[in-house]
Nucleic acid binder design. Structure first.
Lengths: 118, 118
DNA sequence: CCAATTGTTCAATAACTTTTGAACTAAGGA
DNA sequence: TCCTTAGTTCAAAAGTTATTGAACAATTGG
């Protein structure tokens, strides 16, 4: 069973901007962008907010079309929908992430991480 | 007398994104971008919202550092702070405006305009 | 000076968003 | 089967943002 996601052409610019205009969600997106290709589970983000609140923010990101969440056992694998976002809004995600990377006042996750091999 | 504006380095990414994540404000910014260099007064935007509501949205844009408002007699001249935004968040404004231009569902102002010389 | 034009402020309300905790579901391992 | 892990759902509370109308201020033209 997979959760509802908008199709690429249903992704709306004002909704994406509004969703990214929240520091917690921006931190999540930033982290997903840095670990692109590696699907994340929610527990990665527990230092940003409570479990319940994370569920809320991750649902917002998914409903806006910014992320994709797939069920995998008891976990959820979360990925950035970069392909769809780049197609719909060329350059937007890159400039947002670059801007977020340059901002020291933004909350962040896993910025000083030791790469652990599987 | 000029209204309070943030300095370039006070402009915050999440605040800018949240402010642009409103269709009325996006329409204003889009119009300012198309008429860049030409300072606009508020009456240009009266088909987007009521006078009072416009005052509110224009204040949000100004406080976020997206626009500059200068008093000029009984009018206010509103311009995009493109220089400051481009310095702080390279590429962001361009990709937002390009994305907005490609979206037919967004409210717009003056898209079919006859150029009137002064 | 008077009236019109341009826009602001204020208070109220409506509408949304965020956060919370408790209760829940579903999968997987012992 | 029972327990743990991972995450959702729900309802309530808190907080924030958007919209409105009426009243206000400042400038300009007659």
């Amino acid at each position: 069973m997979s959760l509802p996601h908008p199709t690429a052409d249903q992704i709306s610019l004002p909704i994406v901007l509004a969703v990214l205009g929240d520091p917690t969600r921006l931190a999540i997106v930033r982290y997903l962008a840095r670990k692109e290709g590696v699907p994340m589970n929610c527990s990665k983000f527990l230092d940003l907010a409570s479990k319940t609140n994370l569920s809320y923010h991750l649902a917002k990101l998914r409903e806006a079309g910014v992320t994709r969440s797939e069920a995998a056992g008891t976990s959820r694998l979360i990925t950035l929908r970069r392909d769809d976002l780049d197609k719909r809004f060329p350059g937007l995600l890159d400039s947002v992430i670059a801007a977020a990377d340059g901002d020291k006042d933004l909350p962040a996750v896993g910025t000083s991480e030791i790469e652990v091999s599987a």
